[in-house]
């Protein structure tokens, strides 16, 4: 346990040193603004499009800094050290995913009320949407570790990660968008919330094992 906190502390330090937090947040804001301006020009901007854009932007920006997650450790040999240490590689993947979530998705989620309020979603609804995102976006971080592991050692793997991983975000995105749309209509489908949360938990539970198996392929 002490070791896990030690790793968590240093992984956070590494992630902050990589400036990924700044990049993904800027990317998110720019994407929302560009789409907003584009829709403004053709005079078509509704809550529906905004919700779709928010979900797509959050899934794209969580893929932005994923390539460095294992690649850096793989290149400088820290991953060797992790594999030979007393912790299991699954624990390390778990910690890395949590750090990735804290540094990319969490800042974006806190921005959402600020962005959605001027665009016509009430504060109350946008806070509820943030809550749905808090439940579901950890799964995005965990799933994208699979892509990072698959393209380990591959130059220019960023595009490949998007091709592999974006389709796997679909269940989360479908449920997330539908629930957010229902929220803006002031209807609450508890069943859907529970299913989304369950999906998220399933992803969190199984992906570290799949990712560790894929990482071991690169070592044999």
């Amino acid at each position: 346990m002490k070791l896990s906190f030690h790793l968590l502390k240093y992984e956070l330090l590494f992630a902050l040193a990589n400036k990924g937090i700044l990049l993904s947040t800027s990317f998110f804001i720019i994407l929302i603004l560009i789409v907003g301006i584009g829709f403004g020009q053709i005079g078509e901007s509704s809550e529906k499009t905004l919700l779709a854009i928010i979900w797509i932007a959050i899934s794209l920006s969580s893929l932005l800094s994923i390539k460095t997650m294992f690649q850096e450790d793989f290149d400088d040999g820290t991953l060797d050290l992790y594999i030979l240490s007393n912790t299991s590689i699954e624990t390390i993947i778990f910690i890395k995913s949590i750090v990735h979530w804290i540094t990319t998705n969490l800042p974006i989620i806190t921005l959402i009320p600020l962005i959605s309020f001027p665009l016509g979603i009430t504060i109350y609804h946008s806070i509820l949407i943030c809550f749905v995102m808090l439940l579901s976006t950890p799964a995005l971080s965990f799933i994208s570790t699979i892509g990072a592991a698959l393209t380990l050692g591959e130059k220019g793997g960023n595009l490949l990660i998007s091709i592999f991983i974006l389709p796997t975000f679909l269940p989360i995105i479908i449920f997330g968008m539908k629930i957010s749309l229902l929220i803006t209509n002031s209807t609450y489908d508890i069943m859907a919330h529970l299913i989304l949360f369950a999906l998220s938990l399933i992803c969190i539970a199984i992906t570290p094992f799949i990712t560790s198996l894929i990482i071991k392929i690169h070592y044999t």
């Binding site: 002490k2 070791l3 030690h6 790793l7 240093y10 330090l13 590494f14 040193a17 290149d75 400088d76 040999g77 820290t78 060797d80 050290l81 992790y82 240490s85 007393n86 912790t87």
Partner: peptide
């Protein structure tokens, strides 16, 4: 071959990191 170093840490932090891992 590789030294397992992180460029942006100080030597002290790097050693502390390893000390934590191997306890």
């Amino acid at each position: 071959h590789s030294n397992s170093l992180k460029n942006y840490l100080t030597v002290k932090q790097q050693i502390d990191f390893w000390e934590g891992i191997s306890e």
